[in-house]
Design a binder for these strands. Sequence first.
RNA 1: CGGGACGUAGCGUAGCCUGGUAGCGCGCGUGGUUCGGGUCCACGAGGUCGUGAGUUCAAUUCUCACCGUCCCGACCA
Length: 572
Amino acid sequence: MRWSNCLIPTLKESPAEAEIVSHRLLLRAGLIRKLTGGLYIFLPLGLRALRKVENIVREEMNRSGALEVLMPALQPPEIWEQSGRYATAQDVFFKVKDRARKEWILGPTHEEVITTLVAGELSSYRQLPKNFYQIQTKFRDEIRPRFGLMRAKEFIMKDAYSFDSSDEASQISYKKMYDAYSRIFARCGLKAFAVEADTGVMGGKFSHEFMVPAETGENEVVYCEACGYAANIEKATSQSALHAPLSADAAKSVEKFLTPGALTIDQLSKNHQVPAHLQIKTLVYVVEDKPVLILVRGDHQLNEAKLTGLLGTASFRQANAEEIFAHLNAHPGSLGAVGVKTLSVYADEVLQRSVGMTTGANEDGVHLRNVEIGRDIQVTRWGDLRTAQAGENCSKCGGPLKIQRAIEVGHVFKLGTKYSESLKALFLDEKGQQQPAIMGCYGIGVTRTLQAIIEQSNDKDGIVWPMNVAPYTVCLTPLTVTPGSAVMELAEKIYAELTEKGIDVIMDDRDERPGFKFKDSELIGFPVRLAIGEKSLAKGEVELKLRGGILTPIPADKAVEEIVSLIQSKRS
RNA sequence: CGGGACGUAGCGUAGCCUGGUAGCGCGCGUGGUUCGGGUCCACGAGGUCGUGAGUUCAAUUCUCACCGUCCCGACCA
């Protein structure tokens, strides 16, 4: 490619809309442009990088034995009704109507479609295992699109679906995807790692997310350096908190005390000398229209993902002040579960056997001390409901837990038979018995991965592309572009030879000053730059510079050879 | 949807408080100059000041509504 023939609109200044570095660089390097919120146009360079990521994904999926298919983005609502997700996934749908006013769904994901296919085409255990994948555009009515390609209304995803005849076979399929994902992210030059994850609305059995560490990531990962445990904070467990807080005040009876103006855990501990870990935090939630109380220790946070698991439903919300007053006769700040008989009480397991605790009295400005769980509070159900915190102990090995923010680029799920049962993906086993296929599903956000690469690989001058995903591997930079000049003649020769050898090369043939061209090539981040100028060429040399490396003069007649071997040594 | 910030030329911005219809930098065009790290000079093109209504002799400026963008939360690849 000749630069002058391409469209590479680099920007000196960052558009005001871009907050995080990868979003700014995508715009500044001329890789994408925004059409409107959450919708982006890929420009020639951005598309090339995207295709390289896609090809790595494709190669590794094929290598793992998965079969590429392409499913329609437009889907009939009926199959969603059949899987039972029409109602639960309602909020993410973009819907369209045809001329007959019939409704269609722009696919946010494809479990329903692939399972329908398999229901019709596979009927024997002899045809299993099978794993189908596609690389395709997904549509999701995101609540808040943000950070450019990170969270968009429309994005490219690689989604794969495995079908197995037994649980053991399904584990093997899962492992194959897990391994393929590790290879994919490594080849993309990403430092990604797998963490245990919550299954959320997918309703699967268990899952792992692939995370790229980044301060701008939307997720938090809890990990233990000692044993390697790592989990999404929605799922992560911790151990230290399991020790019941002991108190010398055991067996004392409950007594009221006045706490005017103390509405928070913090105020109560400062003004009344009650440490947070000796307080019980009482939260009121409305679960499927019924109010319930949820108790966690004062120094802990409720984890709503875990609450979903304990309740078996995601249909809940925090109660508002009026609802709370209607049921407890008090306002937030003085709430408690002592003596509450009419509402279900869900409590975090840490509170088991707690004595000498302080909690609200359901009377504004009044709290209770010497509260003993079990004696004074009737708990309906116990469970792990708290969010793990940095510094607590690993529940596997006891080592100290740390927390790191990260970008989720992939997710692998063991689904079980949820979809194969509802959509009738059944097969006959060896004994002639009809069984639902055991499914797994596996996603990679391809466009998000592209941005994650940039988020992880950049410096003050711009992007630092890993070799495998750079839009062009080599930027050939003649410092004079006069046709017929020695410099340009050599540039043309090298350009032709590199192209001949299958190397992606762009020649900056613009009639610009050297500094201008260097800045642009560094902003875009081509891995290899070969500069050809009159001064060094007079000595028979050209200048090789790796992005972020140092400038090395090499003999002009060895340039092609040098670049080819350099690239081969870095390819994976 | 709740909370916050904002909307002036392709991009970055000033002016708005204290109404009198716009200025700068980048980019763009032309000419010259320069030529190994975003040259310099001159001239020039480009704006319904997000949209609509209200107040006023007069609104980019004040008021209201709507639309859109960005950030924080619930959702997720």
